[in-house]
Design a protein around this nucleic acid. Sequence first.
DNA 1: GATAGATACTAATCCATGTTAATTATCATG
DNA 2: CATGATAATTAACATGGATTAGTATCTATC
Lengths: 251, 251
Amino acid sequence: MSVPQGIERVLRRLETRGPLDDADRAAVRALPFTPRTLEPAAYLVREGEPPEMCALLLSGFAYRHKVTGEGDRQIMAVHMRGEFLDLQNSFLEVADHNVQALTRCEVAMVPVPALRRIAEEHPRVGRAMWVDTLIDAAIFREWIVNVGRRDSISRISHLLCEFALRLEAAGLSEDHRYEMPMTQEQIADCTGLTPVHVNRVLKELGRLGLIERDKRAVSIVQWDRLQHIGDFNTRYLHLEAGGPTNLASAR
Amino acid sequence: MSVPQGIERVLRRLETRGPLDDADRAAVRALPFTPRTLEPAAYLVREGEPPEMCALLLSGFAYRHKVTGEGDRQIMAVHMRGEFLDLQNSFLEVADHNVQALTRCEVAMVPVPALRRIAEEHPRVGRAMWVDTLIDAAIFREWIVNVGRRDSISRISHLLCEFALRLEAAGLSEDHRYEMPMTQEQIADCTGLTPVHVNRVLKELGRLGLIERDKRAVSIVQWDRLQHIGDFNTRYLHLEAGGPTNLASAR
DNA sequence: GATAGATACTAATCCATGTTAATTATCATG
DNA sequence: CATGATAATTAACATGGATTAGTATCTATC
């Protein structure tokens, strides 16, 4: 995907987070984007380093993670095209986690100072980016619940449901069918389980007739039952968050 | 604590998140605050409701949580005096989680529209509030790791360390001694464990000589060892986040 | 000062998930 | 085609923490 196309996608995404006017849109288009292609496992941000660039994901998948002192990895978020990868870090002094390419990715890099400037000079753009980070935070919270209080079958069902809806919103899936961008080991790192157990649970979900799989292709056959088992409620994704209604509600 | 005192505390807090000028400070002081006292367990925000007021915590403790379909509770954050309770919700259409008083609390309520207005008209105030929510998100991420990849003794040690530092920053603790604001059941809901197991682990930490307890009073005797067992690194708390250095780094 | 409701603490048993290790695809590549 | 790397799968066994079922203590209240 080209950088201009990517920018239009991001603009559409930002406008679902908060209204923008022509000047705002022009300012976003005028940001100094540098296109880059990343190989799988390439680091975008490393824990402990000051953020210098903020990447916009044009294609592919990326993820946030930390590694414990014991060497166990925990994935805290997975990102797809149209999403900002570094708003979570760009306004802080030091990154507190890693951001890494999951697949081959195309990104558009923006220097952090330019990003800080546009947020200050175009408050509506800043507001939309802020709302975007708040939705990231809502997803973090749901992941705390998932990993803290659900059993393994619910955790994985929940993850499969979240992916279905987010991939559909990104135009990467229809009819609850999609290509899972992660290995079973990475699914384990998302859900706080072991790869062996993830395998058991995926097989069980197939046996129950809830999903069908072919390699990494997932097809959710019984959406309602999977959603129920996964205790999945779409509210936290804020799929219609912000938008014009936000203005109306400002009275 | 009086509302004006509370506002000054919040201003100091905001200024650690990003620089403000006199006009910014005046605008914050001019916000229409309504003082209120909340009894323990009173709800500030309920999942599913649109946010109308944003509370600033003047004294006491509050927490964010969700309840799963099975009825299990997961606490996602605990807040103390000087912190905003609702920035996470105020810019979204619908709250995706509950915020509840943990102890008796004094709060200052601000109508959400006034908050949205100040963020737009005073970009530096908006920026400081944004950074504040980003730090909340950093803490959410660390909680995902805690609950996803650490065993019970590490989880609880980590929580005890986090509380020590945050309470010290809020002027509510010194020398790694403090009054834990939660029951063991609530600690369990923070860490994804059962109350029974929390009890075992606390006893074990005492037996190992890492902490001493008297009712809810906690004294961390061997900070270094507890920090090590809890795999606790202060980075994610961003205790010196923002501030003047942020400006400098904007080149 | 009796009763009720929280909270803290303890012990015995059980099971969901981890651990370890081996086997089997699958695919890239020399 | 052999070689190796990566991922998925399966099995046998181990265990951390849940569950259940208490007892003890405290505090509040009438």
